[in-house]
């Protein structure tokens, strides 16, 4: 028996919106400590990792670890049938080939349930080494979304350079070029708008804007985002969800000229 109750459907809806355009099918690994998901896009250029801790749920019970293979598009269609403030209970009996979605309105006067067929997904998990990053930047997630969207008007890739002057995002395209520079915030008036830059070493790498735009679909999950860069490692873009867990993305760099 597996059972997990989300206090609000909205959180699960936001998570799905942030993942479903990168990954079609994924295994939700449910263990005593919580739910995790790790999946790459078809091109193996990006990877999503999700952690939802058991203690972040209203109710969480796993008798035996379960791997729920789910088509995210189907799950997203079902989740659209939930009101944002409905509670969502996912449950699966041992040996069952479906997972049940139970939606309950806040005053318990409406209940609906959907059963989704589970899939056998042959997924390969990757060993992600604990990297020492050359630079770490924390900024408002809306700011990152804006930069990525603005620069996408001029080209396909962004060069991110971290130096003493700050962090610079540069795009070059057939019509011209553009850049945005962010500097470490000095005032602490509005900590939620602050930009923090920790540079251990200057670093510069290029990334496909197409993927960064998809990652920024997670901006509604978290007011702040962390991006971490190393010379010889994929970019890490991390959205923390308070005490519940996180949604992280890794992106392989573009190399050469």
């Amino acid at each position: 028996m597996f059972e997990a109750r989300f206090p609000e459907a909205l959180l699960l809806k936001k998570i799905l919106e942030s993942v479903k355009d990168l990954v079609q099918d994924a295994n939700f690994e449910c263990t005593e400590s919580g739910i995790t998901l790790q999946a790459m896009d078809n091109a193996h250029v990006s990877l999503v990792t999700l952690l939802l801790r058991g203690e972040g749920f209203d109710l969480y019970r796993v008798d035996k670890p379960e791997s729920l293979g789910i088509n995210l598009n189907s799950m997203s269609k079902i989740m659209r049938c939930a009101a944002n403030n409905d509670t969502v209970t996912l449950d699966k009996l041992e040996g069952a080939d479906t997972v049940r979605f139970l939606f309950e309105s806040p005053n318990a006067d409406r209940m609906s349930e959907f059963h989704l067929k589970l899939m056998d997904i042959d997924s390969e998990t990757l060993e992600i080494p604990e990297s020492m990053y050359h630079a770490e930047i924390e900024l408002p997630s809306a700011e990152l979304r804006r930069i990525v969207s603005d620069l996408s008007t001029m080209g396909d890739s962004v060069r991110i350079s971290v130096s003493k002057e700050g962090v610079r995002f540069t795009v070059r395209g057939d019509e011209g070029s553009g850049s945005v520079i962010l500097r470490q915030s000095t005032g602490v008036d509005k900590p939620e708008e602050a930009i923090h830059i920790v540079m251990n070493e200057p670093v510069e790498q290029s990334f496909a804007l197409k993927y960064l735009n998809l990652f920024c679909k997670a901006a509604p999950l978290s007011a702040r985002v962390q991006i971490k860069l190393s010379k010889d490692a994929p970019l890490l873009v991390n959205f923390s969800m308070n005490n519940i867990g996180y949604l992280s993305y890794y992106l392989a760099p573009k190399i050469g000229d």
Partner: peptide, 14 residues
């Protein structure tokens, strides 16, 4: 031109 790398070149398979 730039070449897109893949993650499998950086992360080991489990």
């Amino acid at each position: 031109a730039q070449k897109q790398t893949t993650l499998t070149g950086y992360f080991g398979r489990n």
